[in-house]
Structure formats: structure tokens, C-alpha cells
């Protein structure tokens, strides 16, 4: 059939894909349920995934008598730092030339981010906030995206306690990483607030006794609102931490479960979803820090 040459090829590919999916169904956990243990499931069927939240220690580094643990999430962090820095170095090596290729896209992305930051915080504050926000953004996003590379979570080595541990694990799924980022965000927000409007005025936002000292009973509301705001400064950290941790962990578990149920093919759309989640979470983390920073540097209006 010479006439149908092109569509024959497509047909063959389609048939192969369908066969792959059928095999995958039979071999996965769903197929196992229907057909029991089959030769296919013995070959391609994955192990039952086990979820444990604490990161595994890959090795320890003795420093001053302490055994500093290096977890697989720290290794993943180093990897993403390396990737970010190498890309940044390549992209900015010849900054003076007319932009092209990698530099152009890197520059474009950061420029868009800078535009966003300056749009919210204004030109001057935007410039101050930008390095921290961009680093948070890149850090969260690259950490999330690197974990989607094939083979990232499948390298297993012998850990110090004799059992097998994964060499790399997405850094966001270790609660210490989101917590560290939340602390960084908190510290910088407070720093920006204090350095822009002064310690006295900044603290005056939270300890607002002015109206009460003038003898107004309604000043009690001000005091209450101020203390509530103080509390919310700390609650932000918790919400930052668990938002990122929850999203990253949920993404990881989702992929694991899908792979367990149907090992081949079906997980692909979920990878796309996780790409989006990684970007969105990075944007949210950086964006919320930006908003909190902007709120912190704003001078509270007097007497309203």
C-alpha cells in the first residue's frame, strides 16, 4: 500500500503505544489485582512505594566532633545550586554583547520577574527585594524540576545504616528546606521593614498603644489588631513551610502512586502537572515574600 505510507507509519506507532499501555496496565498494580501475578508484572511491576517524610542520611561529615548528616535532599540541593549557578554563569558571561540564546531567555525570565517585583513594590524597593526573591524563585523551581528528571529518584546506594537509600530526593519534600526558605523570607521581610521605616515605627505596627494612651477605649482594638499582626508574622512562616512542603511531597507521592498503578505512559501528564506545580509554587513563595516585604516597608498611616 504505497499510498498510505505516511499513515501506515502513524498506525504502527499508535499500535505500539497501545500495546505498551496494555502491557503497562497488566504489569502494574491494577493489572495485578485483575490477573494476579503474571510474568509481565514480575518484570515491569514496581515495588510498593513507601512514603516516609524524613529524608534519609546518605553519609555524615564529622565536623568538630559532631557528625553532620548529609541527606539525599541536601545532595539534591547542591545539585540544583550547581545547575543554577552554571546556567547563570554561562548566561551572564558575555553580558555586554547583544543577547542571544541562553542569555536571552535567562535575561528575559529574570527581567519579567524584575518587572513583576517592581510592579508590586515600586522601583526602589523592587530593586532591593529582587535578589532574594529571584533566588527563592529559582531555588524552589529548579529543585522541583530537577526531581522530574528520569533517574533522579531511582539511584539507590547503601546508606550508613546498611539499608538502601536513594541518592537524591527532591529538596522540597524535606521539611527542612521549606522551613529554611520560610526563615529566610521572614528574616528578610523583617529586615526590609526595619531598615526602611526604622525600628521604632516598625515595632509600632505591632505594639500600637497610641490611641489607648490618649484615653480612647477604642484604642483597645488597635492593640488587639497589632498583636494579631505580630502573631500573623510568625504564622506566615508555618504556612510558607507547609504550603511548599505539602505541594512538593504531594507531587512526589502522586507520581509514585501513578507509577505504581500503571508503570508506563500514564504518568506523563502528571509530570506535566508537576512542572506547572513547581513553577507555581516558586512564584507563590517569591510572590508572597514580595507582598509581605511590600507591606513591611509601607508606612502605616496615622490617625484614621
Amino acid at each position: 500500500m504505497p499510498k498510505l505510507g505516511c499513515s501506515t507509519k502513524a498506525l504502527v506507532i499508535l499500535l505500539l503505544l497501545v500495546a505498551l499501555l496494555v502491557l503497562s496496565f497488566i504489569g502494574g498494580a491494577i493489572g495485578k489485582n485483575f490477573f494476579g501475578e503474571t510474568p509481565i508484572s514480575r518484570v515491569i511491576g514496581p515495588e510498593k512505594p513507601e512514603v516516609h517524610l524524613p529524608a534519609d542520611i546518605v553519609f555524615t561529615v564529622p565536623v568538630f566532633g559532631f557528625a553532620l548528616p548529609v541527606t539525599n535532599t541536601i545532595l539534591a540541593t547542591w545539585l540544583s545550586m550547581l545547575v543554577i549557578i552554571v546556567v547563570a554563569l554561562i548566561a551572564t558571561r558575555r553580558m555586554a554583547l547583544a543577547p542571544g540564546g541562553l542569555q536571552n531567555s535567562f535575561e528575559w525570565g529574570l527581567e519579567k520577574l524584575l518587572g513583576f517585583v517592581e510592579g508590586v513594590a515600586g522601583h526602589e524597593n523592587g530593586r532591593r527585594f529582587f535578589p532574594v526573591l529571584a533566588t527563592i524563585f529559582l531555588f524552589v523551581m529548579v529543585n522541583a524540576w530537577l526531581a522530574l528528571f528520569p533517574g533522579f529518584g531511582s539511584i539507590e546506594i547503601h546508606g550508613p545504616e546498611g539499608k538502601g537509600v536513594h541518592l537524591l530526593r527532591s529538596a522540597g519534600t524535606d521539611i527542612n528546606t521549606p522551613l529554611a526558605l520560610a526563615i529566610v523570607s521572614f528574616v528578610f521581610v523583617e529586615y526590609w521593614g526595619i531598615s526602611s521605616i526604622g525600628l521604632r515605627r516598625y515595632l509600632g505596627k505591632f505594639f500600637n498603644f497610641k490611641q489607648l494612651l490618649k484615653g480612647k477605649v477604642m484604642g483597645l482594638v488597635d492593640v488587639f489588631v497589632g498583636l494579631l499582626e505580630l502573631l500573623s508574622e510568625f504564622i506566615r512562616m508555618v504556612s510558607f513551610t507547609f504550603r511548599l512542603f505539602g505541594n512538593m511531597t504531594a507531587g512526589e507521592i502522586l507520581l509514585m502512586v501513578v507509577m505504581f498503578l500503571v508503570p508506563w505512559g500514564i504518568a506523563l501528564p502528571f509530570y506535566g502537572l508537576e512542572l506547572l506545580v513547581g513553577f507555581v509554587q516558586a512564584l507563590i513563595f517569591a510572590g508572597l515574600t514580595l507582598v509581605f516585604g511590600t507591606m513591611a516597608v509601607a508606612v502605616h498611616e496615622e490617625g484614621h
Binding site: 517524610l53 524524613p54 529524608a55 559532631f66 553532620l68 548528616p69 548529609v70 541527606t71 535532599t73 541536601i74 540541593t77 547542591w78 545550586m81 533566588t135 531555588f139 529538596a171 524535606d174 521539611i175 527542612n176 528546606t177 522551613l179 529554611a180 526558605l181 526563615i183 529566610v184
Partner: peptide, 16 residues
Amino acid sequence: KLGINIPVLLAQLVNF
């Protein structure tokens, strides 16, 4: 259970 671990936390702070 959550896996909060001060040395790892510090390490991530330093990394960042």
C-alpha cells in the same frame, strides 16, 4: 515524624 532536623535545617539555610 515530619523530619525536622536542626543540622539539615542549618545546612539548607547555609546553602540558600
